[in-house]
Computed example of a mutant assay.
Amino acid sequence: MSSARVVALTVLSMVAFAANSLLCRVALRGTGIDAATFTSIRIMSGAFVLLLAVWVQRGRVPRAGNWPSALALFVYAAGFSFAYLSLPASTGALLLFAAVQATMIGYGVCTGERFSVLQWIGLVCALAGLVGLLLPGISAPPPGGAALMLAAGIAWGIYSLRGKGARNPTMETAGNFTRAVPFAGALSAITHMHAAFDWAGLAYAIASGAVTSGIGYVLWYATLPQLRVANAATVQLSVPVIAAIGATIFLGESLTPRIVLASVAILGGIAVVVLKGRRPANIERT
Rank of each mutant, 00 (worst) to 15 (best):
G157W: 00
L237G: 14
R228C: 08
R167P: 01
A146T: 11
V235Q: 12
L202C: 15
P142G: 05
L237N: 14
A166G: 14
S160L: 03
L202P: 04
P240M: 09
A195P: 02
L219H: 13
T234P: 02
G165A: 07
G216E: 10
G214N: 06
P142H: 07
P143C: 13
W156E: 13
Q226F: 14
A147K: 12
Q236E: 08
A210N: 07
M193L: 13
I158R: 10
H194G: 08
A152I: 05
Y204T: 08
S160P: 05
H192C: 13
P142I: 02
Q236L: 05
A233L: 06
L161G: 09
A205R: 08
I215Y: 04
H194T: 14
T173S: 14
P182I: 01
G153P: 07
A146D: 00
Y217T: 14
A151G: 15
L161D: 06
P240C: 00
L237M: 11
R162T: 00
I206K: 10
Y221T: 12
G157H: 12
K164H: 10
D198E: 13
L148Q: 09
R167A: 09
S208P: 03
I190S: 01
M193V: 12
T212I: 09
T170G: 06
A205W: 04
A174C: 08
A155R: 04
M193F: 04
V229F: 00
F197C: 12
S208M: 14
G214C: 12
G153R: 06
G214W: 02
M171R: 14
S208C: 08
V181N: 06
R228P: 03
V235H: 12
P240D: 07
Y159G: 13
A222F: 03
H194N: 14
A186Q: 00
S160R: 11
Y159N: 15
L227G: 11
I190F: 06
A152V: 00
K164W: 04
L148F: 08
F177S: 11
W156Y: 15
A196N: 10
W199L: 15
A222C: 06
W220P: 13
N168C: 10
S213R: 07
M171Y: 06
A232V: 02
T178R: 05
P182H: 04
G144Q: 04
K164Y: 09
I206A: 15
